[in-house]
């Protein structure tokens, strides 16, 4: 049970601490260190496998000619931005980005405004139907959206004639249920005293929400923006169904159409496709790398589906 190599003078040293006890088993420390090293190596090797396609995407997007050989995977050779120019000339890259931004922005706005209100009501206010609403919210998380695609298509495109409109694109995603859940959990864990004190001062429910709850909401807001952003930004099926007019299509749809229809005509089709893929991937990846602290298991365990 010797925890360190040094001679123990202080009797307390002989008593293993909590962490010592956990690390200590019958194997000698070198073997243990070896196994830990092995675990770390496996983790790093796995991470490289996970990251490789991203690296390959960037390298491929910068090559003048598609190079599928093993040497082509190495970061050497002549790099060029021609592929980005090529994809921009084949499709309306800026227009598509703008459509993606409007689609995503609309969903974010709807989710933040209505989600805060609903989350606050579910956490802090006693009203008729609260239990039912909460149960339905949980149920919704396991109803796969794709399976409702036909009736939603019938409603939005056929009944309301909202094809090729931002409203039609945004409507099915307007309020992200996972975000409502995150807001609810956040308001639930704020101390009761805070609200009781404001109520004793005679503040109205509206005033309590505005001056007590909302100023504190920032950490939850960041988490909500992150998990909501990747929904519409990455979504393919719905905008693909609802937009036939190319000037209305978000980037995911534009790029998919380019891949399946017209890529063959470009000088370096893969290069142009990969350049488009980089443009589509970059905002989400950047957001999640910068704010990685807000995207952990504990932030999400409430939010079930991303």
């Amino acid at each position: 049970m010797v925890s360190t190599g040094s001679t123990t003078r202080d009797p307390r040293d002989a008593v293993p601490t909590r962490s010592d006890a956990r690390d200590d088993d019958s194997t000698p420390s070198t073997a243990r260190g070896g196994r830990r090293l092995l675990g770390t190596l496996v983790l790093f090797a796995g991470a490289l496998v996970f990251l490789f396609p991203f690296y390959y995407m960037v390298v491929g997007s910068l090559r003048a000619k598609a190079d599928t050989s093993v040497a082509g995977a190495l970061p050497f050779g002549d790099f060029t931005f021609d592929n980005f120019i090529a994809i921009d000339s084949r499709v309306d890259l800026l227009g598509s980005l703008l459509n993606s931004a409007i689609f995503t922005g609309g969903v974010l706005l709807g989710t933040v405004v209505f989600g805060v209100l609903a989350g606050y009501a579910l956490a802090r206010l006693h009203f008729r139907g609260r239990g039912t609403l909460f149960a339905v919210m949980l149920l919704v998380q396991i109803v796969p959206f794709q399976l409702l695609i036909i009736p939603i298509y019938v409603m939005i495109v056929r009944t309301y004639g909202l094809a090729d409109s931002y409203l039609g694109m945004i409507a099915p995603f307007l309020i992200n249920s996972a975000a409502v859940f995150v807001f609810r959990q956040f308001f639930l864990q704020l101390p009761d005293d805070l609200f009781d004190a404001a109520a004793l001062d005679g503040a109205s429910e509206l005033r309590i929400l505005w001056s007590v709850a909302l100023p504190l909401v920032r950490p939850a807001l960041l988490t909500v923006v992150l998990i909501t952003f990747i929904g519409p930004w990455n979504e393919f099926l719905w905008p693909f169904l609802v937009t036939k007019d190319t000037s209305m299509q978000p980037l995911a749809v534009t790029l998919a159409n380019y891949i399946s229809n017209i890529a063959g005509r470009a000088a370096n089709p893969y290069g142009a496709i990969l350049a488009g893929a980089v443009v589509l991937a970059a905002p989400a990846v950047a957001l999640f790398v910068v704010f990685q602290k807000r995207f952990t298991g504990s932030e999400l365990s409430s939010g079930v589906k991303g």
Binding site: F54, M57, N234, L255, I259, I273
Partner: peptide, 8 residues
């Protein structure tokens, strides 16, 4: 986005 990753 799936579309980006599918491309690679």
């Amino acid at each position: 986005a799936s579309v980006s990753l599918v491309a690679v």
